[in-house]
């Protein structure tokens, strides 16, 4: 909420250009191709984790650029991190529980 951020909000930085959208889009298409290609290689246990890793890269691109999170107000960025923790802490608890059964 500082003055630096306000000045950012007020000029054209706020609007992401068509060019950036296209670059992100082609990045997403490339990563989709990569996901399909990697799935054809048998890595055993690792296949699922590699697929999730690539999907998370794609998700990061969508959230940061298409959903504007990279340029977003500090409050919205902070709440986003809290929401991710709220989602993944129970995930961690379930996995730990499963592995120790």
């Amino acid at each position: 909420m500082g003055s630096h951020e306000q000045s950012h909000d007020h000029d054209d930085h706020h609007i992401i250009g068509y060019g950036t959208h296209l670059v992100i889009y082609f990045g997403l298409l490339l990563l989709t191709g990569l996901t399909v290609a990697v799935a054809r290689v048998n890595l055993g246990e690792l296949n699922l984790w590699v697929a999730m890793l690539v999907a998370t890269f794609k998700a990061a691109l969508v959230i940061l650029y298409f959903m504007h999170m990279k340029y977003e107000h500090k409050l919205i960025q902070f709440l986003f991190v809290i929401a991710l923790l709220a989602l993944f802490l129970p995930y961690g608890a379930v996995f730990i529980d499963y592995l120790h059964r």
Binding site: A51, A55, V62, M67
Partner: peptide, 18 residues
């Protein structure tokens, strides 16, 4: 709409590429 896209980004490998 991007959230709907995001969910599909995970659904696709989990269901189709497993």
């Amino acid at each position: 709409w991007h959230l709907v896209d995001l969910i599909w980004i995970y659904l696709f490998p989990l269901l189709y590429l497993v």
